[in-house]
Each structure stands twice: as structure tokens, then as C-alpha cells.
Design a binder for these strands. Structure first.
Lengths: 168, 168
DNA sequence: CGAAAACAATTGAACGCTCAAGTATTCTGT
DNA sequence: ACAGAATACTTGAGCGTTCAATTGTTTTCG
């Protein structure tokens, strides 16, 4: 029998404030990107991840894992992004099960253009409101939660050092 | 001309970790509630807010404001929740523009049953992974972000003191 | 070898959210 | 009083996500 305590007053306040902030932040980022760049935040992240990958390409499965996306979700998203000419999908003879996704020049351009406004918004809504100490704290808190949310989740990240692209 | 700095390494790490954690947390909470209680997290929040309101009722507009929801979104949600018998909508003669939403006994029951598993999940994924200090920090960070996200957002909250219902 | 399992990706239906438009009611100012 | 503005809510189309089912390909191993 598992005992489950209710949230105490302090936790309650924290939880509701956190939920509200996240809810509004999500909406704000998505709205800004859709309005200024015509793509949802999730699609921006797909492009960003691809832009940092070696050769600017990844298999669908690998990309899905990096983004913690379901294969299905990525597949739908890829269909749309491909129609828009931002990515290209193709197969290689080595393993004909896998599909390679590659970000196109047009996709890179769209990403770079979108990045300006996006980063400005992230700054305005998050980093400008926090002290350096709080940024530290937020990272540690997020890492703690990730431990419970994504136990086996490491996966490399291709951190392209000096590149003002895709800063998200 | 507004200058926009890119995110530095520290901020970059924080931002990605935070985004990932929030993305996974959102998915986990929604999945748990849909699976165990048959309602999405957003609908749980509607029921929770109503359960704490005086007389268990609010106008659509007031409820939407409390939840930072668009009227449209709430209207769609209310249609579904009403079909499911969890809420009831009606008009009062005083102002025939406004619609009053009331949570039904059935809705209260569903909420109470859903709350157990939900709170367990929130504990497991969030509060159990954080120290008391970090909970403090997370609240302060969330409040800071809220300041930028929701400038004029106060709105009362009906904090029902000693009640193990709707702890979310 | 060959059958079964594992893997990679896609598809379609259901659903919730967004946005723009629409209906109905009440308030405002002259 | 009454036209126009403001308020309250609803509706429908479009889109992204989820889930379950499906197709095609490679691996495993008896």
C-alpha cells in the first residue's frame, strides 16, 4: 500500500504558480513562432536539432529520440515540413528500413530567421526575469525532474560551439 | 534598434533541460489522467477550479480568466464535460449574456477519484525529486516568469484551507 | 535456411486547441 | 431613446498530437 500525501500549502502554491507559468510560456513561444515564422515551437525544435547534426541529417528514429518525440508525431511533422521544403527525406541502401531526414538550405534559412525573434522572446520571458543564481537553480531543478521523467535519457547533443544559429 | 544577445552556454543548457523537463512532465501528467480518469489535464484543472469556487459555480468568463484560458477553449471543453455529466451550464435572469458553470456531484466524484493518482504522480515526478529549498526556488522562479508572462494577472483563488480535494 | 521477432517508419481516426467569425445581450453617451 | 460599443459566449475550420493498426525490412536463432 503506497501512501500518498497531499500537497501542503507551500507545495500547492509552488505547483500552481509553476503550472501557470509553464502554460503561459508555452503559449507565448508558440504564438510568437507561428506568427513570425509560420511554424510551431515543436517544429522549430526539429529544425534546430537537425541544423546541429553532422551533415545536417539524422534518421527519423534518432531524431525522435533526441526530441523525446513519438515516431508518429515526428512522422506527421516531417510530412508537413517536407511539403514546406524545409526538410528532405530519403533512404539509403544500407538499411532500407530507416529514413534519413535532412534540413534543406531553405530550412536553415527559415530557422536562422526565426531564431532572432524566438531568442528575444525567450530572453524577455525567462532569462531577463531571473538572476544568474536563479538560472543555476532552474537548471538543477530541471535536471532533478528529468531524472524522474527520463531515467535512461542521455543521448548526445552535437553542441556546435561557436554558432549563432538555432540557439534553442 | 533592439539588441538581442544569444544564449550563453550556461543559459543554453538551462533552457534545453528546462524545455525537455516541461515537455515530458506535461506528457506524463496528461497520460496518467487520461488513462486513469479519462480526462486531459486541462479538464482536470477546470474541475478543480470549479470545486473550490463558492457554490461550486463560476461564470464562463471568470473561469476562463482564472485558468488563463481563451473563452473558446473553455467553451469547447465545457461542451465535452457537460456531455460527460461532470458539469452543468445554465443562465440566470440577471444577465442573460453570462453562462454559469457548475460542477455536478458526478464531476466532484470523478475529480476526487482522479486526484489520488494525479497527486501521486506530481509528487513522484516533481516534489520527491526536489529539496525544500528547491521548492522555494521553483516558486520564486515561476513567480518571476509570471511577472513577464501575465503582467496584470492577479485574480483570487478560493484557497479552500483544509480539504484533500483538488490538490492541483 | 526459414519462421518468428525486432525494428523503422507511416497512416488514419479521434480529439483538444487556436483563430476568426458569428449571435445574443447589456451598457454608454448624447 | 436608441445607435453603437462593449460584453459574453459559441461555432466551425484547420492543425498538431495521440493512439492503435499497418507495411516493409532486417535480425535472430532453432
Amino acid at each position: 500500500m503506497i501512501e500518498t500525501r497531499w500537497l501542503d500549502g507551500e507545495e500547492q502554491r509552488t505547483w500552481r504558480t509553476f503550472l501557470m507559468a509553464v502554460h503561459l510560456l508555452d503559449g507565448a513561444l508558440d504564438r510568437q513562432l507561428r506568427h513570425d515564422a509560420g511554424i510551431p515551437h515543436a517544429y522549430y525544435q526539429i529544425l534546430a536539432m537537425l541544423s546541429e547534426a553532422p551533415e545536417r541529417e539524422l534518421t527519423m528514429t534518432r531524431l525522435a529520440r533526441l526530441l523525446r518525440s513519438s515516431p508518429s508525431r515526428l512522422s506527421h511533422a516531417a510530412a508537413r515540413l517536407e511539403t514546406d521544403g524545409m526538410i528532405r527525406r530519403f533512404k539509403r541502401p544500407e538499411d532500407r528500413r530507416t529514413t534519413i531526414v535532412e534540413i534543406t538550405d531553405s530550412g536553415m534559412k527559415a530557422l536562422e530567421e526565426a531564431a532572432f525573434g524566438h531568442v528575444r522572446e525567450v530572453r524577455r520571458l525567462v532569462f531577463d526575469t531571473l538572476t544568474h543564481e536563479q538560472v543555476d537553480q532552474l537548471r538543477e531543478i530541471s535536471e532533478s525532474m528529468l531524472g524522474a521523467l527520463d531515467p535512461q535519457g542521455e543521448e548526445p547533443r552535437y553542441p556546435d560551439p561557436e554558432d549563432p544559429r538555432a540557439t534553442d
